[in-house]
């Protein structure tokens, strides 16, 4: 039986010293193969007395098992090493750029508008459009701005004919909506408006407004304040404060302008709010009863409120854009930032 021990010893020794998987195979053949050393021990069993054979057989099997386990372990360790080497060799520079097609970008005005739309849709407002080339009636007269009213001059209107013009305010959509005769109304209407202002860092002859109109029984000035506060908080953050100042618009009475606490400096005063801590954001008011009457709504039964927001104004503040011209130049180095 010394012979068997020697075989095991020899096998384990050569496994230990083997350099790669191939030499392991040779070792396997040498010891466990059909003509291998263990096999020849088994073969020699026929020369042993019958009562010893099972014992020797068992010993040989154990030896085989032991060698096999050692072989497997060694093989596993070779494979692990090879895998490691392979992975090591496959290391790439993960900081190289990705290969997906780059997405484009929405215009900052559109991003802002979608935020505003979502806020009001959540409060049950319809979003509707209206004509950009408009009759004088809808842009002025039906909004309580009769012919020759000085307020008409203030708006620097582009005219096509005496009665057809480029709308100066999305407020014209109020009238279209009221004329439909479906009450109550909760709507906002975003769109292009036009005023005869030369192009500079803060003016553009084309810009966008978002009009809002609510008409129902029992609508109050307090409702206007509450609604717009809600809007401001959702757009600029929960900590935003609002301030309403008296103002004048022909089609609302009482009228107001709303300031929001500067969302850059939280009201402390910075260059965006010109040190005031507040930013003027929109005009609003209770719908003038005469405006309701002209559109066939009884002001003794229904009241309402309206507001108008300058979209560019919000975009400029929100993204800290210091020149309005950038919005219409379409330089992709600008557009790709949004």
């Amino acid at each position: 039986m010394n012979n068997l021990d020697n075989i095991i010893k020899g096998a384990i020794e050569s496994i230990k010293n083997s350099k790669d998987v191939n030499s392991l195979n040779d070792i396997k053949v040498k010891y466990l193969g059909k003509k291998g050393e263990l096999t020849s021990v088994l073969k020699s069993m026929k020369d042993l007395p019958a009562e010893e054979r099972p014992k020797v057989g068992q010993l040989v099997n154990e030896a085989r098992k032991q060698i096999q386990i050692t072989l497997d372990e060694k093989k596993q360790s070779f494979e692990n090493a090879m895998m490691e080497a392979k992975l090591e060799s496959e290391t790439i520079d993960v900081t190289l750029p990705g290969k997906a097609l780059k997405q484009g970008h929405l215009h900052p005005n559109t991003s802002t508008l979608r935020e505003v739309e979502n806020i009001f849709i959540g409060m049950g407002y319809k979003v509707v459009g209206g004509p950009e080339v408009e009759y004088d009636y809808y842009n002025f007269e039906a909004l309580n701005i009769p012919a020759d009213h000085p307020a008409k001059d203030e708006q620097d209107t582009f005219y096509i004919t005496k009665d057809i013009l480029l709308r100066t305010q999305t407020s014209s959509v109020q009238v279209h909506e009221m004329e439909k005769g479906k009450l109550p109304i909760r709507m906002i209407s975003p769109g292009r408006v036009f005023r005869s202002d030369e192009v500079d860092a803060t003016h553009s002859p084309t810009f966008h407004q978002i009009e809002g109109l609510v008409i129902d029984k029992g609508i109050t000035f307090a409702d206007l304040k509450g609604t717009l506060q809600e809007f401001a908080k959702r757009l600029f953050g929960e900590e935003t404060k609002v301030k309403f100042r008296p103002h004048h618009f022909q089609f609302t009475e009482p009228s107001a302008e709303m300031d929001v606490s500067c969302f850059k400096c939280k009201g402390k005063g910075c260059r965006f709010c010109k040190g005031e801590g507040w930013i003027e954001i929109l005009g609003c008011g209770v719908v003038h009863p005469h405006v309701l009457e002209m559109s066939g709504i009884d002001p003794d039964v229904y009241t309402g409120f309206a507001f108008g927001v300058g979209l560019e104004r919000i975009s400029l503040f929100k993204y800290e854009i210091d020149d309005m011209r950038l919005l219409y130049e379409n330089d992709t180095r600008f557009l790709k930032q949004f």
Binding site: G104, H105, H107, E132, L166, F194, T206, Y328, K336
Partner: peptide, 10 residues
């Protein structure tokens, strides 16, 4: 991959 542009109506 298109970026949104805005230009004047006139």
């Amino acid at each position: 991959g298109f970026c949104e542009a805005m230009t004047f109506s006139f």
